[in-house]
């Protein structure tokens, strides 16, 4: 007993008091910033370098963080043009807002796209069922961490539950493998409506490194509207928690 009290004292207070204002280490690879338009030659080089085709050229130079695997190699190759900031609030509910352009200083939410029932029903409690469909388990780790003693998203009534029947929505990680597609569908069908659909991690949003893999089958996403895109490789717990808070209007 005395040993346990000693351990508890050492343990101290672990929770992050301000989940919206916490600052991550400077090297954390969050929202990219385009400081200056890369030249044509540089753009060509970056397109060849980028492992996940995240460089956008239509409508000027941009980086699609729904495709980006956050390796930062583009910023290392063109340090005067691109940098990765430690801004972890990089989620949005609108796929178009995932493309970062020169002059952008935040990833914007599209308030108009949020369904009214989402805020009405889930503001004070949101129970989620997670489905890993080819995830490499780093996103799964971070989702677990979102509820742990440090990040404790339970304080806002957000929680992962064991059964889709108890859930208000589904959180998908991974590029959605063909072998998991049917189980995902069954899980979605078993979740009572109204429900939310959240994609966590670059693999889930765009297929990431696996978008051209013949082992992946993403038709599920053609059928249902997505309420939230949470980029990252993996998505940091703070990214996920802030994204959900923003969605439910907290």
């Amino acid at each position: 007993m005395i040993k346990e009290i000693k351990i508890l004292k050492q343990h101290g207070i672990q929770y992050v008091p301000d989940l919206k204002g916490a600052v991550l280490t400077p090297l954390f690879r969050g929202r990219p910033v385009i400081k200056e338009q890369p030249s044509e030659a540089e753009t060509e080089m970056l397109i060849r370098l980028c492992p996940s085709d995240a460089i956008v050229t239509v409508g000027g130079f941009g980086i699609d963080i729904g495709k980006c695997v956050f390796c930062k190699e583009c910023a290392l190759a063109c340090p005067n043009k691109i940098e990765f900031t430690n801004d972890y609030k990089i989620a949005t509910n609108d796929l178009n807002n995932l493309i970062v352009r020169q002059g952008d200083s935040e990833i914007k939410f599209n308030e108009e796209k949020i369904r009214p029932e989402v805020r009405k029903l889930f503001k004070n409690a949101l129970k989620l069922r997670q489905v890993s469909a080819g995830g490499d388990n780093s996103c799964e780790f971070e989702l677990n961490a979102s509820g742990n003693v440090n990040f404790d998203m339970g304080r806002y009534g957000i929680e992962f539950v064991a059964s889709p029947r108890h859930a208000d929505g589904i959180v998908i990680t991974g590029p959605i493998t063909e072998n998991m597609a049917e189980a995902l569908q069954i899980c979605w069908d078993a979740t009572p409506g109204p429900k939310v659909l959240i994609l966590v991690g670059t693999d889930a949003i765009s297929g990431g490194m696996f978008k051209n893999s013949p082992a992946v089958k993403r038709e599920f996403l053609d059928k249902y509207p997505v309420d939230l895109y949470v980029p990252g490789n993996p998505a940091h717990p703070l990214t996920f928690i802030n994204a959900v808070l923003r969605l439910i209007g907290k």
Binding site: S132, M180, S213
Partner: peptide, 11 residues
């Protein structure tokens, strides 16, 4: 198992 198969070796 097999649910997680993403075709890594081919990629």
């Amino acid at each position: 198992l097999g649910y997680q198969h993403r075709g890594v070796e081919k990629l």
